[in-house]
Structures are given as C-alpha cells and as structure tokens.
Amino acid sequence: MALTTADFRRMIAETRGAVVPSSAPMTVPDRVPHRFAPGSGMSARCDDGPARTIEIVLVPATRPPGRGWLGGLATLAKVLALPVLLAAGLYAKPVYECHKQKGHGMLYYGTTVTMCVNERMAGHVGSVQAFLDSRMRGM
C-alpha cells in the first residue's frame, strides 16, 4: 500500500494531537551547482537528471505524556502560592510587632498577643475600607 504525502501529514498530525494544520511542503532542489577546482574533473553542472524534492513537514509539538497526579499537585501549589504568601505577608507584620511589644513589656495588663494581632488586623481592615470608600466617593 502506497502512502501519499497528504496521508503521511494527516497521520503525523493525528498521532501528535495537532490542532493547527501542518504547513505546505517546502520544495528544495536536491542538487545545486557547486564550485569545484578547475582540474578536479568533477562536473559543476546540475542538469544530470530530474531534480528531486525534499518535503519538510512542520507539525506543532505536544506536551510529553506522564505528568499525572504529581504534575497536578505542582500546578495546584503554584496556583495557591500567591494567595498564601499574600495572606502571610499581611499577617506576619502584626504578629512580629505584638511579640516584640510583649517581649519589651509594652502590652496592656491582660492583653494577649492574639488580642493584639486581632486589634491590629481590624485596624488595618478598617483603614483599607476607609480608603476604598473615599475612592468610591471620588469616582
């Protein structure tokens, strides 16, 4: 059974799961005139016979198989990393300041570090809300 060029392109595209159709073949002459030394006896002419063509089929590459659940876990970690780092960054500064105040004995009587952190976070949320309210009124 003879395999035509179109069938070959279709087979390659199907095995690789290509979405983009393959490009048209490029025709490149098989023989080109070369420059030889004058006394070498080799012919520099290229009309020895019919010119053959070389077809180059370009097909988009696919993702390598086998990522499995480990790849999904890595993707999930990448997606969740930014919100976790953002929340940790907002929460870390008040915790550090409250622990520092406790170490220096600067907290009020009966105030715990947790109460101090909650108070600072509430103040921060209140200031952000006031900022957004003023901007909305300005618009």
Rank of each mutant, 00 (worst) to 15 (best):
T4P: 04
Y108H: 06
A74V: 12
G68K: 11
R45C: 09
L76V: 12
G89N: 02
L85M: 05
G126K: 09
A61L: 03
A24L: 10
M139G: 08
E14Y: 03
P60H: 00
K100H: 10
L58Q: 13
A87P: 03
L3M: 14
Q101D: 10
G41N: 00
Y96M: 09
R120M: 10
Q101A: 12
R16V: 11
P29R: 07
M1G: 15
V20D: 10
A51L: 10
R137Q: 09
L73Y: 11
P29H: 05
H34G: 15
T75G: 15
T15W: 10
R137S: 13
A77L: 10
A24G: 12
R9W: 02
R10L: 14
K100G: 09
P60Q: 02
I12Y: 05
P25V: 07
A18Q: 06
T75H: 11
L76S: 08
D48H: 11
V20S: 10
T75I: 14
L86I: 02
G103K: 08
S23I: 08
T112H: 03
P21A: 10
R137A: 13
T27F: 11
L70M: 15
R67D: 09
A74C: 05
L73V: 13
D30H: 12
T53C: 07
Y96D: 07
F131D: 15
V19S: 14
D48P: 04
A2M: 13
V84P: 00
S127D: 09
M1S: 15
A130C: 07
A51D: 14
Y109W: 09
R137C: 10
P60S: 02
Y108C: 01
G110I: 00
T62N: 07
C116V: 01
F8R: 01
A51V: 11
V32L: 09
V28R: 10
M11V: 03
V128P: 05
M115G: 12
K100V: 02
G41S: 03
M115H: 12
A92V: 01
G105C: 06
L70N: 08
P50A: 03
C116W: 03
I56K: 10
G126E: 07
G17P: 00
A61P: 04
L3R: 12
G39E: 07
H124Y: 06
L58E: 12
A81G: 14
V19N: 09
